[in-house]
């Protein structure tokens, strides 16, 4: 199971990649996409929408199941990954790169400390 060292994680199987200026990309992990199977639809939030940590900000659907997406930290949406509207399978083929789901502006960077590192997430992502 691929769990990049450089990312932060949640127990809900989302990853967060910190960019500059308190911006970040959020997606679902390789473990999550593998559990869901072929992803057929990703519901993206609107630009400018604000969420608190733990809020549902979208849905990932596969043939087998629909799974809510939870915001890892308080944040405002900069943009959703428009590529996923036509090619949701990118979440399967490239969960940590092309398959990112939303770009956010982090409201309270101190919350980042509450996220899991790769080693801690690896404990959760066991079958």
């Amino acid at each position: 199971m691929n769990i990049p060292e450089t990312l932060k994680y949640t127990k809900d199987h989302e990853w967060l990649k910190i960019l500059e200026n308190d911006e970040a990309l959020v997606g679902i992990t390789d473990f999550a996409q593998s559990s869901l199977g072929d992803i057929t639809y990703v519901e993206l939030p609107e630009e400018g929408e604000e969420f608190s940590e733990g809020d549902t900000f979208g849905v990932v659907e596969s043939v087998k199941a629909a799974s809510d997406l939870y915001m890892p930290v308080d944040a405002e949406v900069i943009e959703g990954n428009a590529v996923l509207e036509e090619s949701p399978e990118k979440v399967n083929s490239s969960a940590f790169e092309e398959g990112w789901i939303v770009k956010i502006k982090i409201t309270d960077p101190s919350q980042l400390e509450l996220l899991l590192d790769a080693a801690a997430y690896a404990e959760i992502a066991k079958d």
Partner: peptide, 9 residues
């Protein structure tokens, strides 16, 4: 088996 390579494929 629910799937092998993936349901869509």
């Amino acid at each position: 088996p629910v799937q092998f390579g993936g349901i869509l494929d």
